[in-house]
């Protein structure tokens, strides 16, 4: 971006998601929303969209809204289509001179609303190239309904529909790579990020996503203390481990060009990410070493694949 990232300045911008909402302590979702909305230039107005999920039921409980901007929730599977209607209305009304202000369009969905039930609606909105940003706050399961597996749930995670048991080691399948799917839509901007250190990565990506004309997609790892089983105060630590083990690589795809935005100095073993989370506790029982090895192999394979794309 043109201007050097200034942590203090950025963090002291007025919040566009007001306090008083009902999200859990230690939830990554709200941190994602606040970080993304901070990238909006103060003079710009916005319409915020939202798929049904924790975020929606906790931030817009009638008669209170936590959003300083206009906001629309429609249903679970159609955040992409809904915001594309809003964005199109804006273009028409602006052309007709009925609106003079500048508006930006950002919609949030969890991985359930994005990877799964809302994938078609998202794909349609991206393919049509609406000038909007779809932000997936990926917490790796259907958390709003009580931690059921999604296609974003990592392999072996203990969820309420893939419980670890006497003859089960949690989720059988590996996770879907949504950022790659979105990149294959050949939209101008796709990025994967999370919050680490000074929030620079997510801030800059959100700003690029919002201010790049056309469709943009952000995939943000947004841990869930209840679903993952970590201490609420460890949110930042978990995100750091996700990036340092290369479980959650941070990269961007600008006009089809893949670029890593973070490379750990020394890639940490995946156990360090898995160990603090209750959803992986069963992997650390004697005899399950092989499962961790398998997990590590998958992380390595994907990291290598990504590095190849970025070279």
């Amino acid at each position: 971006m043109e201007k050097e990232y200034q942590f203090k300045e950025i963090m002291s911008k007025p919040e566009r998601l007001a306090p008083g909402h009902r999200m859990c302590a230690g939830c990554g979702g709200t941190v994602t929303v606040r970080a993304v909305l901070r990238a909006l230039h103060e003079e710009d107005k916005a319409v915020i969209g939202n798929a049904t999920g924790c975020l929606e039921v906790s931030t817009f409980m009638y008669p209170y809204t936590a959003y300083e901007d206009s906001y629309i929730h429609n249903a679970f599977e159609n955040a992409g289509a809904t915001l594309s209607g809003v964005e199109t209305a804006y273009r028409v009304l602006k052309k007709k001179g009925k609106i003079t202000d500048n508006y930006k369009f950002i919609t949030f969905g969890g991985d359930g609303g994005t990877y799964d039930i809302g994938l078609q609606s998202l794909s349609g909105a991206m393919e049509r190239g609406h000038d909007m940003v779809y932000v997936c706050y990926d917490n790796g399961a259907y958390m709003n309904t009580g931690t059921q597996r999604s296609s974003a749930t990592p392999q072996f995670a203990d969820t309420t529909t893939t419980p670890a048991g006497k003859v089960s080691a949690g989720k059988i399948q590996i996770r879907k790579d949504l950022a790659a799917i979105m990149a294959e839509h050949h939209i101008p901007y796709v990025a994967q990020t999370t919050f680490n250190a000074n929030f620079r990565d997510i801030h800059e990506k959100a700003e690029k996503a919002i201010y790049t004309p056309g469709a943009a997609f952000l995939n943000v790892l947004s841990p869930c203390p209840r679903g993952w089983g970590y201490d609420a105060s460890d949110l930042m630590k978990i995100c750091k481990l996700a990036t340092d083990t290369c479980y959650w690589p941070m990269f961007e795809v600008v006009e089809g060009k893949w670029k890593l935005t973070y490379e750990p100095r020394k890639k940490k073993p995946i156990e360090e990410f898995l160990r603090p989370q209750k959803r992986f506790a069963h992997l650390f029982k004697p005899g399950n070493e092989e499962l961790i090895e398998q997990f590590q192999k998958e992380v390595d394979r994907r990291w290598e694949e990504l590095c190849n794309k970025c070279n």
């Binding site: 429609n74 289509a81 809904t82 594309s84 209607g85 809003v86 209305a89 009925k98 609606s121």
Partner: peptide, 22 residues
């Protein structure tokens, strides 16, 4: 015209546009 990918999205986008003031 919005070339939606399904009728569900057709009504969803119509709803978004209408809520936006169109």
């Amino acid at each position: 015209f919005i070339h939606v990918e399904s009728e569900h999205s057709a009504m969803s986008a119509t709803l978004g546009a209408s809520a936006a003031g169109a």
